[in-house]
Design a protein around this nucleic acid. Structure first.
Lengths: 148, 148
DNA sequence: TCCATATTGATAGTGATTCTCAATAACCGA
DNA sequence: TCGGTTATTGAGAATCACTATCAATATGGA
């Protein structure tokens, strides 16, 4: 939150009740927050907040580096707090049954990818890695390969 | 194209001038074709084809396994012919400067991912891997990290 | 050729996100 | 503390890509 104030000040922007509420709620929620869910949560604190403001604020947090946009292919934007756990990027496992998300990190994979990219002349700036599959629970529940 | 006829027949579906034109055009175009571009190209052959039909046909090709949907995060769907090059999945390098796309494949990376997924109880069904960065050309052109 | 029905095209509808713009509220200085 | 400049907000319209609807049409087998 302090980083946010500083970033806002540094850009000649202003704080606001809404902005604070959105950021605070977002960081408290944790995980991979769909904007829609964030709107709902924020409104429990600040009833009038509009979706536009939430979208705007999350984009701001992303610009400042405090949030990372995630896209799990279901058509709605999610954000994840940037400080969580590792300094480096981590990849995601998305359960196609229950939607549960697990994270993992592998310097080895990253190194391999970087190397292969270089071989094609590319310098990697951003990675987008998700593996979709069934978590243990859903497999145990006997849900077929396509949801029951 | 033969595979397509068979698949269509096997499903009790019918061929049509539009379907043929769309499939043929798609395979001729090659690469990672945005639906929008495909519509344009097809209409040079069959002027009246509607976007709905193109979307429907591409979904059909995907169902049948002849096309693979790709999502490069720019909000429009692309399809890639499934037969191209490798039998297995390949990953993509997307240049943030010129949009050029390179492909690479690494059994080692796939194996590592599968192993890490298992460690979290996941069984991988589908992978979604793109690396965004600058290709050699764009870096040489001195375009800064954010397009000039 | 005829018919049952798969397919199509035009368009309305969706769902998520962004834009517009007048009203409001933050910050800064006096 | 008060004011003024101007960033921010909220409501709803607008976009954008894609899907559903449905009457008209075309396909493939009998």
């Amino acid at each position: 939150m302090e980083v946010l104030s500083e970033a806002i000040a540094a850009k000649g922007l202003r704080r606001s009740r809404q902005r604070d509420a959105i950021a605070r709620t977002f960081f408290v929620m944790g995980g991979h927050v769909p904007v829609e869910a964030l709107v709902e949560a924020v409104r429990r604190q600040e009833p009038g907040v509009s979706v536009a403001t939430v979208y705007r604020t999350m984009k701001l947090l992303a610009d400042v580096g405090l949030a990372v946009p995630r896209d799990f292919g279901d058509g709605r934007a999610r954000y994840e707090a940037a400080h969580r756990r590792h300094a480096h990027s981590h990849d995601h496992l998305v359960c196609t049954g229950c939607g549960r998300i697990a994270e993992f990190e592998s310097h080895q994979i990253e190194a391999l990818q970087r190397r292969l990219a270089r071989r094609h002349g590319f310098e990697v700036e951003r990675r987008h890695v998700e593996l979709y599959g069934r978590c243990a629970g859903c497999r145990a529940a006997g849900k077929g390969a396509d949801a029951a």
